[in-house]
């Protein structure tokens, strides 16, 4: 691989990694407060993509001018975030909360989430058709800058900037706000947290919503980058889940790191081993890392029983 090619694959790799990181945060946040894998998170992502697609299709003129383009992108971001957040909220209400009240075993949550995931993606397929759809033409996807000869398109730049902003914002939210303190307290010890006045139900619900906002936006950005379809959540969802585990599930910065790593691995895997092995690399890296660090890269030692 020539140095030139290296940069050519690095840029999309970083962009993809940033996207995975944002989705992985959704998994890891929920894992932090509930010690559960939210299997339906990929559907939050998918519905975020569809929400923005529907609104933008009806809004976008044939040849949008520059200010309109910016406005449309903003609308897409907001709408996708709202859709993702609403889906995650409903998901928690329907598929998680009733089980939590009964103190159901963990596997039951898993199956309920899998059921919700089946339901949602098949419903989306039914309502919006089963063919992949491109996002409407919001702007000419030109090259805006060159990094060491590698071209960076508007979409890639947009993706990176949004992902970065969201990650910084989330980090601030978790570490600096009252809600963030609640989330961290719940992750450490739910019983003590609730004795200290943390409203567990509310914090859990809001954690889902935050993960959903991020996941929804990721769906929109993914749609801009490729296409929107009812099964679009599947592969990114699994890879992001692997990323969350790779970084140490429950650890937010770990999820960001894991996402970035897997995005890069996936991108470089294509020239090295071929397009058809694209999705294997993530798992090979995962197994390799977990063998040496069973709790993930940034994961703490297994203190509490899972």
């Amino acid at each position: 691989m020539s140095p030139h090619e290296f940069w050519d694959y690095l840029v999309p790799g970083v962009a993809l990694g940033a996207l995975y990181a944002v989705i992985a945060i959704g998994y890891t946040l929920v894992y932090g407060v509930l010690q559960l894998i939210n299997f339906a998170h990929s559907e939050v992502f998918m519905l975020g993509g569809f929400g923005s697609l529907i609104v933008l299709t009806s809004l976008t003129p044939a040849h949008p001018s520059a200010p309109i383009s910016v406005l449309l992108v903003l609308v897409g971001l907001v709408v996708s975030a709202l859709c993702g957040g609403a889906t995650a909220y409903g998901l928690e209400k329907v598929a998680y909360r009733p089980l939590r009240r009964r103190g159901a075993p963990k596997l039951v949550f898993l199956i309920s989430a899998i059921g919700a995931s089946f339901f949602l993606y098949n419903l989306a397929g039914k309502l919006f058709g089963r063919d992949p759809l491109p996002m409407p033409h919001l702007y000419d996807n030109n090259v805006v800058l060159t990094v060491f000869g590698a071209r960076v398109t508007i979409t890639q730049l947009l993706l990176l900037v949004c992902a970065l902003l969201m990650m910084v914002g989330l980090d601030l939210l978790v570490n600096r706000t009252r809600l963030g303190a609640g989330i961290r307290a719940l992750a450490q010890d739910p019983e003590t947290a609730s004795l200290m006045g943390v409203d567990t139900d509310r914090v859990i619900s809001r954690t889902f919503v935050i993960g959903g906002l991020l996941g929804g936006v990721a769906g929109f950005l993914f749609g801009l980058n490729t296409q929107v379809s009812f099964t679009m959540g599947f592969n990114p969802g699994i890879t992001a889940f692997a990323a969350a585990v790779l970084g140490g599930v429950g650890n937010i910065r770990g999820a960001m790191l894991g996402g970035l790593l897997l995005g890069l691995v996936e991108s470089f895997n294509v020239p090295l081993f071929g397009e058809e092995w694209r999705y294997v690399a993530a798992f090979v890296v995962l197994v390799g890392v977990l063998m040496f660090r069973p709790a993930g890269i940034l994961g703490v030692k297994i203190g509490r029983a899972a």
């Binding site: 949550f109 309920s112 949602l120 039914k126």
Partner: peptide, 18 residues
């Protein structure tokens, strides 16, 4: 409709788990 079968199955799983 044949294409909707898994949707109903998903709904059944959720209801059953609840």
């Amino acid at each position: 409709d044949q294409k909707d079968r898994f949707m109903y199955m998903g709904a059944l799983l959720v209801v059953m788990m609840i």
